[in-house]
Design a protein around this nucleic acid. Sequence first.
DNA 1: TTGTAGGCGTTATCAG
DNA 2: CTGATAACGCCTACAA
Lengths: 343, 343
Amino acid sequence: MGSQVTLADVAERAGVSLATASRVVNGSERVVGARFRERVLAAAAELGYTANAFAQAVARGRSDVVGLVVPDIQDPYFSVIAAAAMAVVEPRGEMMLGTTLHRQEQELRYITTMRARQAQALVMVGSRTTDAAHTRRLAEAIAEFVASGGRAAVIGQDRLGTDTVLPQNRAGAKDLATALADQGHKTFGVLAGPKTLLTARDRLEGFTDGLARRGRRAAVVLHSEFTRDGGYQAMSDLLDRRSRPGCVFAVNDVMAIGAMAAVRERGLRVPDDVAIAGFDDIPTLRDVAPSLTTVRLPLEDMGRMAASMVLDEQSGDRRRVVRVKGEVVIRDSTMVSSRPGSS
Amino acid sequence: MGSQVTLADVAERAGVSLATASRVVNGSERVVGARFRERVLAAAAELGYTANAFAQAVARGRSDVVGLVVPDIQDPYFSVIAAAAMAVVEPRGEMMLGTTLHRQEQELRYITTMRARQAQALVMVGSRTTDAAHTRRLAEAIAEFVASGGRAAVIGQDRLGTDTVLPQNRAGAKDLATALADQGHKTFGVLAGPKTLLTARDRLEGFTDGLARRGRRAAVVLHSEFTRDGGYQAMSDLLDRRSRPGCVFAVNDVMAIGAMAAVRERGLRVPDDVAIAGFDDIPTLRDVAPSLTTVRLPLEDMGRMAASMVLDEQSGDRRRVVRVKGEVVIRDSTMVSSRPGSS
DNA sequence: TTGTAGGCGTTATCAG
DNA sequence: CTGATAACGCCTACAA
């Protein structure tokens, strides 16, 4: 359709061979004479030439595309990671973005797409699920991707046979539970997210474990979506009940934020009427009031690490699993006020 | 490097010609016999064949890549737009993401990159600046992109000769100013963002106009970055002054959120000690307390529109500029309390 | 240092 | 409907 300027045009205009033109526009350093070099550069500039990245990729047999697939780019958790990954990818290649909107088929589709695009690397972020069949298919697709020359890393559970950045969800949630109990909280509820999400499940289990350590248990466990609205809705349900726990743990921060909205909407107050804690420590938390108790994950580091695992490291070594641990951060949302009973 | 399975492999295995294999795997509908079709499909499946998108793009002379360039994918304003654009792109192609981190050279670089990638379309979002030289270079680069067969649209000021989605910044800010004055606010300050950003400048001017309509003027105008931290810092500076205005307008919501943090940090309260208003109505606002008065822009629509302008519309018609207007939304952050003086 | 020519994986044209 | 074969735009031995 458009007036594609090709390298041949440049070569002709500069009065040199295609090979020479190619060498100066791309190839190795100064294997070409200064005279010709200038002529080619000038011609390219005059014609407004830009190399066709596809043709280059075909000829070279590889590309500089890095695929990033996330569930939802609007979710702060993922956008932080994406931004961090972007920072390491940007100097070396282009980034192709895929968002699954939490649909499993999309995950699969994107892996295929990335393979078709000969992406040199793939970073996939998001919790694995309890769906064994899907997980297997995913692992197979990634294996094919790797077999065809790409490198892959995932942020999440270590289920796909790739390099992985693995948040210590269980341990973090456990630490949080004991810390909350030690703060003096006595009755607990959990907004547990989807039953099928391993991240959600692990955090729930870790939290329960931690409570058990202190001789407590969760009075209520509600499942909902892993989103802000999921948290809002579960908390609303919880508040509609006869009795409410003194402290509620939402398995991630966005859910906790939704939960706080539900509390606020009912004219209740955090932490006086109900304490709330989250998980992740997304940057957004700087601006929620009261400040939210949570388990801090080094999200930026995680994004950077995943990206550099697939880009920097020599591909010879065997796969690595980097565990990142979460650190409990107590803030205002769980401060125990001097209020009478426990419930 | 990897064991690339090529179409030739598939053809050989199926015992058909390369052309036939190509036809069934991609090309036009059912020009190929059922027998052969099945054989090819089977062979492709067995071999785990995936078409090389680059080779296809080279052969076809076009690709299905859509480029999206935004200043910062972590900023809610841009991530909403990105998500909306993604939704319309996803069914038809891949999305290549570029983030400029507010650096001008990056904007330019990405346009070139998109051209190299033969992107069929390009959506660029972000305010234009007062830098005429850079704007001209940008316009030229985009013209080249278009000349080489791509379509382009921008969300922001109409300075690049492309289809554009143009927020009515001035009018929105003006309406906001009059509304605030009518609410009873008497003294005003503006966190005006960078002097060089047209979006920031237009909103400042519109706001000033609106105040003038009511016989008021801004007592303080502070410039800082167009970010949450920029708002925080400017507000801190403002609060350090001898006297503070009763109402502060931050030229976008993230700045307003930063400003609220600064207020909170000093133990002051919104709106009792100082009222605050923003601009954009980003989704994040659902969770800020007190709720923030702002000017609502239909961000999702804007993202969708930009994407569909470059994808759906027939390329024959002349360029369009769609103006989207902002609607003032008064919320708690500017509720006038029954407090004595104005300052 | 420069040019020639073959090849990268697909698509598309044009005869059978 | 099928199969050679010429593009597509570029890279890269290999030869000059």
